[in-house]
Design a protein around this nucleic acid. Sequence first.
DNA 1: ACCTGAACACCGTTCAAGT
DNA 2: ACCTGAACACCGTTCAAGT
Lengths: 237, 237
Amino acid sequence: MTPRTGADELTEQPRIPLSRRRVLRAAVGLADRDGLDSLTMRRLAQELDVEAMSLYHHVANKEAVFDGIVEVVLAEIMDAVDGVDAPAPEDDWQAALRARILAAREVLLRHRWAPQVLGSRPDASPAVIAYLDHVLAVLRAGGFSFDLAHRALHVLGSRALGFTQELFQPDGARTADAAAAEMMEQMAGRFPNIVWMLSGALHDDQDGTLGFCDDQFEFEFALDLILEGLERRRAAG
Amino acid sequence: MTPRTGADELTEQPRIPLSRRRVLRAAVGLADRDGLDSLTMRRLAQELDVEAMSLYHHVANKEAVFDGIVEVVLAEIMDAVDGVDAPAPEDDWQAALRARILAAREVLLRHRWAPQVLGSRPDASPAVIAYLDHVLAVLRAGGFSFDLAHRALHVLGSRALGFTQELFQPDGARTADAAAAEMMEQMAGRFPNIVWMLSGALHDDQDGTLGFCDDQFEFEFALDLILEGLERRRAAG
DNA sequence: ACCTGAACACCGTTCAAGT
DNA sequence: ACCTGAACACCGTTCAAGT
């Protein structure tokens, strides 16, 4: 993409010096493109046209790289959330929070590895704290007590950032269709209730796409259910 | 614990032969005791008094070990759930499901690494499918349509098995107290809403233990909120 | 059939040396 | 100050060889 030979070569331009910022941006790019397992110190260095050991002048170790890329993603989320178009929290905290969470979700969908890395951090990063502070501001403006606001954060859990932990993650290769069909075949006798549920989905299917597990739909359904439950408890005082 | 020298030695007793079962039980034990990062093929072999390469006669590779220990934990959960004391699903699906999920949670609390491994499996294991089938049976008996039952599984997500993805996991070493105190100090100005929330918790604190983030309490609060929301949608038809 | 030793291709990281 | 090469202590895994 960016050929290193050409007219510029004549000027004997020195390489852009490495920096923490460059290292982290390359790490995010590598994880986006090739997945988290491909993010090794050696491959990261290769990405930057440098030896692996040079990285250690800008990040303490690999854990610091993970901390760093979480920071980068959270910064993107904060940007997205700041620019969101939604009612003022004082007027409609549910709509305000809903819009913010869905904006955060859009960012995370661009960095599929982020949930896993986030979950593996033992300590709360300042960036996460800052985001939670932002969420709390909405709840507070909406009239939550500190108790209920605290519990709301726990109820939302990772959903506050726009993702949820599913019990398994059907990947792109095997679609929900294939998984469903396979189950129907193999497990008809063993898992009668799964079959019941899937047969319902097949029956409802209008356009032949087996619109099963529309992640966005499921996410919003769950989010709305939770926001509604929180509002009921808020209103009950 | 089981000394290999002694009277028995004279009988020249042959070692218990390796088996998939023994390998997986040792893997669970190792992960329980030393954490998931300590679960390497070489250390696992050491645990079994065997060379690392011998393991490959009983498991295909390390991924298969992860799949296997998930199976083991799910089997424990199925046992716990089967023995649960709760109303019949036909009479009170909420109480029936609540009791089962809390039983599953107790098992997971003995295997702290399980959520992480579960989340990393790309395909649904038969054991997870079997558990979900069990959950669906309860919902079905409770009068759910297949649509709503399907959505209920998504809303519950990992909570169906008794765990939730938090945005960070304060470890045992640094207690919630310490983390809270630290925040109050360092971040008073930057995160006003966090401070607001924490000051509330401090104020409410009666017995001086700063009863903040009681995981069990938070879990049940969230679970009840969700079950209630699902019941409302079920009743609405 | 079941286990092993040596080897291979990778890791993250340290350290002394280069410019 | 910043980068590097060689080295160390680990990984998962293969393969030919042992019993």
